[in-house]
Protein backbone atom coordinates (compact mmCIF):
# COMPACT_ATOMS: atom_id res chain seq x y z
CA UNK A 1 0.00 0.00 0.00
CA UNK A 2 2.75 2.34 1.01
CA UNK A 3 4.56 1.73 -2.23
CA UNK A 4 1.53 2.53 -4.30
CA UNK A 5 0.92 5.73 -2.47
CA UNK A 6 4.49 6.79 -2.95
CA UNK A 7 4.50 5.94 -6.62
CA UNK A 8 1.27 7.84 -7.21
CA UNK A 9 2.75 10.73 -5.32
CA UNK A 10 5.86 10.62 -7.47
CA UNK A 11 3.77 10.46 -10.56
CA UNK A 12 1.98 13.61 -9.50
CA UNK A 13 5.29 15.32 -8.98
CA UNK A 14 6.10 14.68 -12.60
CA UNK A 15 2.82 16.20 -13.68
CA UNK A 16 3.28 19.11 -11.43
CA UNK A 17 6.70 19.76 -12.88
CA UNK A 18 5.17 19.92 -16.32
CA UNK A 19 2.32 22.15 -15.33
CA UNK A 20 4.07 25.30 -16.46
CA UNK A 21 4.56 24.04 -19.93
CA UNK A 22 2.56 25.18 -22.88
CA UNK A 23 2.19 23.08 -25.97
CA UNK A 24 1.23 23.82 -29.57
CA UNK A 25 0.68 21.41 -32.43
CA UNK A 26 -0.67 23.60 -35.19
CA UNK A 27 1.49 26.69 -35.15
CA UNK A 28 2.02 28.62 -38.36
CA UNK A 29 5.28 29.51 -40.00
CA UNK A 30 5.28 31.26 -43.35
CA UNK A 31 8.11 32.47 -45.47
CA UNK A 32 8.36 34.94 -48.24
CA UNK A 33 10.99 35.43 -50.91
CA UNK A 34 10.96 38.64 -52.91
CA UNK A 35 13.01 38.54 -56.10
CA UNK A 36 12.94 40.49 -59.37
CA UNK A 37 11.16 37.79 -61.36
CA UNK A 38 8.74 36.35 -58.86
CA UNK A 39 7.56 36.40 -55.28
CA UNK A 40 7.43 33.04 -53.60
CA UNK A 41 5.59 32.24 -50.42
CA UNK A 42 4.83 29.09 -48.51
CA UNK A 43 2.93 28.20 -45.37
CA UNK A 44 3.32 25.49 -42.78
CA UNK A 45 0.36 24.99 -40.44
CA UNK A 46 1.70 22.01 -38.58
CA UNK A 47 4.44 23.50 -36.45
CA UNK A 48 4.73 21.88 -33.05
CA UNK A 49 6.19 23.84 -30.18
CA UNK A 50 6.69 23.93 -26.42
CA UNK A 51 7.11 26.92 -24.15
CA UNK A 52 8.12 26.54 -20.54
CA UNK A 53 6.99 29.54 -18.54
CA UNK A 54 9.22 28.65 -15.65
CA UNK A 55 12.53 28.26 -17.42
CA UNK A 56 11.52 30.51 -20.35
CA UNK A 57 12.69 27.80 -22.70
CA UNK A 58 11.13 27.83 -26.14
CA UNK A 59 11.44 25.15 -28.81
CA UNK A 60 9.69 24.48 -32.06
CA UNK A 61 9.93 21.93 -34.77
CA UNK A 62 8.45 21.40 -38.23
CA UNK A 63 8.54 18.99 -41.12
CA UNK A 64 9.94 20.53 -44.29
CA UNK A 65 7.46 18.57 -46.37
CA UNK A 66 4.55 20.28 -44.59
CA UNK A 67 5.28 23.58 -46.35
CA UNK A 68 2.52 24.23 -48.88
CA UNK A 69 3.32 26.33 -51.95
CA UNK A 70 0.77 27.79 -54.36
CA UNK A 71 2.60 26.04 -57.21
CA UNK A 72 3.23 22.31 -56.89
CA UNK A 73 6.43 22.43 -58.90
CA UNK A 74 7.90 24.97 -56.50
CA UNK A 75 7.11 22.63 -53.65
CA UNK A 76 8.86 19.78 -55.45
CA UNK A 77 11.94 21.87 -56.13
CA UNK A 78 11.93 23.24 -52.58
CA UNK A 79 12.04 19.72 -51.15
CA UNK A 80 14.14 18.08 -53.82
CA UNK A 81 16.74 20.70 -54.76
CA UNK A 82 16.97 23.32 -52.06
CA UNK A 83 16.04 21.99 -48.62
CA UNK A 84 16.78 18.34 -49.49
CA UNK A 85 14.04 17.15 -47.19
CA UNK A 86 14.91 13.50 -47.81
CA UNK A 87 18.16 14.05 -45.92
CA UNK A 88 17.06 16.85 -43.59
CA UNK A 89 13.36 16.24 -42.97
CA UNK A 90 13.05 18.59 -40.00
CA UNK A 91 13.84 22.12 -39.00
CA UNK A 92 14.08 23.05 -35.32
CA UNK A 93 14.54 26.00 -33.04
CA UNK A 94 15.85 25.60 -29.49
CA UNK A 95 16.10 28.78 -27.46
CA UNK A 96 15.07 30.94 -24.59
CA UNK A 97 13.05 34.05 -24.03
CA UNK A 98 15.69 36.39 -22.65
CA UNK A 99 13.52 39.42 -22.08
CA UNK A 100 9.81 40.04 -21.78
CA UNK A 101 8.39 43.48 -21.14
CA UNK A 102 4.71 44.21 -21.70
CA UNK A 103 4.42 41.49 -24.25
CA UNK A 104 7.53 42.56 -26.19
CA UNK A 105 9.98 39.74 -26.01
CA UNK A 106 13.50 38.95 -27.10
CA UNK A 107 14.40 35.43 -28.06
CA UNK A 108 17.81 33.89 -28.44
CA UNK A 109 18.50 30.42 -29.65
CA UNK A 110 19.73 28.00 -32.23
CA UNK A 111 17.91 27.58 -35.50
CA UNK A 112 18.55 24.45 -37.54
CA UNK A 113 17.61 24.38 -41.21
CA UNK A 114 19.03 22.09 -43.88
CA UNK A 115 21.19 20.39 -41.24
CA UNK A 116 23.00 23.64 -40.41
CA UNK A 117 22.65 25.28 -37.00
CA UNK A 118 23.06 29.01 -36.49
CA UNK A 119 22.46 31.22 -33.51
CA UNK A 120 19.75 33.80 -33.96
CA UNK A 121 18.48 36.63 -31.82
CA UNK A 122 15.12 38.11 -32.67
CA UNK A 123 12.31 40.17 -31.26
CA UNK A 124 8.68 39.35 -31.11
CA UNK A 125 5.51 39.37 -29.09
CA UNK A 126 4.67 37.07 -26.23
CA UNK A 127 1.28 37.29 -24.61
CA UNK A 128 -0.19 35.13 -21.89
CA UNK A 129 -3.95 35.12 -22.02
CA UNK A 130 -5.62 32.80 -19.52
CA UNK A 131 -4.27 29.38 -20.27
CA UNK A 132 -2.89 30.32 -23.65
CA UNK A 133 0.41 31.76 -24.71
CA UNK A 134 0.60 33.49 -28.08
CA UNK A 135 3.91 34.26 -29.69
CA UNK A 136 4.65 35.96 -32.97
CA UNK A 137 7.87 37.03 -34.57
CA UNK A 138 9.44 38.00 -37.85
CA UNK A 139 13.03 37.48 -38.81
CA UNK A 140 15.26 37.06 -41.82
CA UNK A 141 17.03 33.88 -42.82
CA UNK A 142 20.02 34.11 -45.14
CA UNK A 143 20.19 31.11 -47.42
CA UNK A 144 23.98 31.19 -47.54
CA UNK A 145 24.24 30.68 -43.79
CA UNK A 146 22.29 27.45 -44.11
CA UNK A 147 24.20 26.19 -47.15
CA UNK A 148 21.15 26.36 -49.41
CA UNK A 149 22.53 26.88 -52.88
CA UNK A 150 20.72 28.85 -55.53
CA UNK A 151 21.95 28.16 -59.05
CA UNK A 152 22.71 31.18 -61.19
CA UNK A 153 19.91 30.41 -63.61
CA UNK A 154 17.22 31.01 -60.99
CA UNK A 155 19.11 33.82 -59.24
CA UNK A 156 16.44 36.31 -60.25
CA UNK A 157 13.66 34.02 -59.06
CA UNK A 158 14.78 33.36 -55.52
CA UNK A 159 15.85 35.94 -52.95
CA UNK A 160 19.00 35.40 -50.92
CA UNK A 161 17.29 36.60 -47.79
CA UNK A 162 14.01 35.01 -46.84
CA UNK A 163 11.49 36.67 -44.54
CA UNK A 164 10.09 34.25 -42.00
CA UNK A 165 6.97 34.83 -39.92
CA UNK A 166 6.14 32.78 -36.87
CA UNK A 167 2.72 32.65 -35.26
CA UNK A 168 2.11 30.08 -32.58
CA UNK A 169 -0.68 29.72 -30.05
CA UNK A 170 0.19 27.48 -27.12
CA UNK A 171 -2.19 25.76 -24.76
CA UNK A 172 -1.45 24.86 -21.18
CA UNK A 173 -0.45 21.26 -20.78
Amino acid sequence: MMRQIISIFLFLICFYANAQQYLAKDGTITFFSKAPVEDISAINNKVSAVYDAKTKALVFQLNITDFIFPKSLMQTHFNENYLESDIYPKSTFVGKVTENKNGKAKVKGELTIHGVTNEIITEGKLQIINDNVIISSEFVVKLKEYKIKIPRIVMYNIAEEIEVKVNIEFKKQ
Partner: peptide, 27 residues
Protein backbone atom coordinates in the same frame (compact mmCIF):
# COMPACT_ATOMS: atom_id res chain seq x y z
CA UNK B 1 14.10 -0.81 -4.63
CA UNK B 2 11.18 -0.31 -6.94
CA UNK B 3 10.40 3.02 -5.44
CA UNK B 4 13.94 4.15 -5.99
CA UNK B 5 13.78 3.02 -9.57
CA UNK B 6 10.55 4.92 -10.13
CA UNK B 7 12.00 7.91 -8.39
CA UNK B 8 15.03 7.87 -10.65
CA UNK B 9 12.86 7.44 -13.71
CA UNK B 10 10.70 10.36 -12.74
CA UNK B 11 13.72 12.41 -11.94
CA UNK B 12 15.27 11.71 -15.28
CA UNK B 13 12.03 12.53 -17.09
CA UNK B 14 11.78 15.73 -15.15
CA UNK B 15 15.29 16.91 -15.89
CA UNK B 16 15.14 15.82 -19.48
CA UNK B 17 11.98 17.82 -20.04
CA UNK B 18 13.78 20.84 -18.75
CA UNK B 19 16.88 20.30 -20.77
CA UNK B 20 15.36 19.37 -24.00
CA UNK B 21 11.78 20.26 -24.66
CA UNK B 22 12.29 18.94 -28.16
CA UNK B 23 11.85 15.44 -26.84
CA UNK B 24 8.24 16.35 -26.03
CA UNK B 25 7.63 17.05 -29.67
CA UNK B 26 7.62 13.51 -30.87
CA UNK B 27 6.01 14.04 -34.20
Amino acid sequence: NKIIVILIMCQSLFTKAQDNLLSMLVS
